[in-house]
């Protein structure tokens, strides 16, 4: 499973990346976390407001810092679908 964190590099984006990494660790699922700061890639993913998080290509959160619990539950849901 690939989880991407989109953000040009502001404080909120770094915080989100940190939370996503912790959540990935805690979820027990095998997850690759990527940080995306390239504008074109953001545009292609349809991300409008940052920080945003996508799981396997679908954007699950945008414009805010999610909580660790939320991210864990997103990862769990995505793992179920697989």
């Amino acid at each position: 499973m690939i989880v991407k964190v989109f953000g040009p590099g502001c404080a909120k984006c770094k915080e989100t990346e940190q939370i996503v990494r912790e959540a990935a660790e805690a979820s027990g699922v095998s997850v690759t976390v990527e940080k995306v700061s390239d504008l074109r890639e953001m545009m292609a993913a349809g991300v409008l407001s940052t920080p945003a998080v996508s799981i396997d290509g679908s954007v699950v959160s945008a414009g805010r810092v999610p909580s660790k619990g939320e991210v864990v539950s997103w990862i769990a849901t995505a793992a179920c679908k697989q």
Binding site: G7, L39, M42, M43, S49
Partner: peptide, 17 residues
């Protein structure tokens, strides 16, 4: 709308595209 200044570029692109 609430708006973080670091979102301005993705937002700009999202709107124009």
């Amino acid at each position: 709308t609430p708006f973080c200044s670091c979102s301005s570029v993705p937002l700009f692109l999202g709107f124009t595209s």
